[in-house]
């Protein structure tokens, strides 16, 4: 079981790299924020899996929860910030 979790964690690390293309390339700033948000939500799962592998889930879960709150607030704040801009203005 531990081996399976390690394989899945590695797979997840690869999955997290894919949206970086959008962050680096994305034509608009919203695409970049979307990429960052997607990476953040996947990182939450990665933290939980790492907690299982190290056998210290109770600590890593708290970190993951804090990370989820932080990710959500940051996406909201960035969205709110760019809402005040207008195209061409």
């Amino acid at each position: 079981m531990q081996d399976v979790l390690i394989y899945i964690t590695n797979l997840l690390a690869v999955i997290i790299i894919i949206p970086f293309y959008r962050v680096l390339k994305g034509p608009t700033v919203f695409d970049r924020v979307l990429g960052v948000g997607a990476i953040g939500t996947k990182t939450l799962v990665l933290i939980c899996l790492v907690g299982f592998i190290y056998g210290r889930l109770e600590m890593f879960i708290d970190i993951a929860l804090a990370y989820a709150v932080l990710n959500f607030i940051s996406v909201l704040a960035i969205a709110k910030y760019f809402k005040s801009y207008r195209k061409g203005a």
Partner: peptide, 14 residues
């Protein structure tokens, strides 16, 4: 979060 981003993009004029 998805909705907030969509709304920001819509307001921006995308």
């Amino acid at each position: 979060a998805t909705h907030a981003l969509a709304r920001a993009a819509l307001r921006y004029g995308l």
